[in-house]
Design a protein around this nucleic acid. Sequence first.
DNA 1: ACTGAAAAGCGCATTGC
DNA 2: GCAATGCGCTTTTCAGT
Lengths: 152, 152
Amino acid sequence: MRLDETDKRILQLLQHDSKITTKEISYRLELSMTAIHERIKKLEREKIIANYVAILDKEKVEKNFMVFCHVKLIQHTKENVSKFEREILKLEEVLECFHVSGDYDYILKVYVKNMKAYRSFLVNKLTALNGIGSTQSTFMINEVKNSTNIQL
Amino acid sequence: MRLDETDKRILQLLQHDSKITTKEISYRLELSMTAIHERIKKLEREKIIANYVAILDKEKVEKNFMVFCHVKLIQHTKENVSKFEREILKLEEVLECFHVSGDYDYILKVYVKNMKAYRSFLVNKLTALNGIGSTQSTFMINEVKNSTNIQL
DNA sequence: ACTGAAAAGCGCATTGC
DNA sequence: GCAATGCGCTTTTCAGT
């Protein structure tokens, strides 16, 4: 599906605040509510919009100890890789996991309460998985920017 | 504010799908709509819920070329640092930026269309900023997990 | 693909329990 | 802290262009 300028502007608004009403969008884009409504429904149907979520304040829910954990596997057999990836999905502390180029195989973004909780995660959960060669942790000192908003 | 189990379950549901109705939540948690409604309002008022957003399919909007860009500053004067951080906020390709421990000062998460766009970003935008010492790019080969859902 | 109006459902505030 | 009511707004649908 090709997105025109109107679609992009709608997506921009929804990425910023998904609780915005069709009425408000129609007012801003100078189109009828129905037109906006149909476009949004189409964007949802086509899964351009993957989902709508609430973003929590990580500090207030006490999960603002963030660590980038670089993981290297022992060997890259198809089995090993798919096993590791399946297990990672189950670990609630891992919000993101990317297979990457470079010195390490994976980069995990881990959110926990504090260093103690991170240690526990490393020892009891991550390194408990089979096939982990080595890990290297990079700790967040400060969050400068953390957005979900893709500019179109 | 302290969160009890009910709050946590509500947040869990809203993190998964913010379009869920109070009615549906009240049904699942076996509480009245009023109770659920008041709790959600409080969670919003206290900014436990930071905001509601639409998440887009990065592939479908052609921004699925993701790079972790490690940045080292030349010198860490207060001025340099705050200038850099202010400028980063303006770069739309950078969705996330963390000041981190380790060999590099910052890790940026950059989403662009393809390698050509990334090169353009690096040359024209990032390294055009003053005070950048060096950068190192780690390219995403595959996205294993990418969630915004914090387990409480 | 857009408009306008009507119908259905939900959010929200209020009242009383 | 919960149930019930009613109003207003929003979403959703439908006919028309």
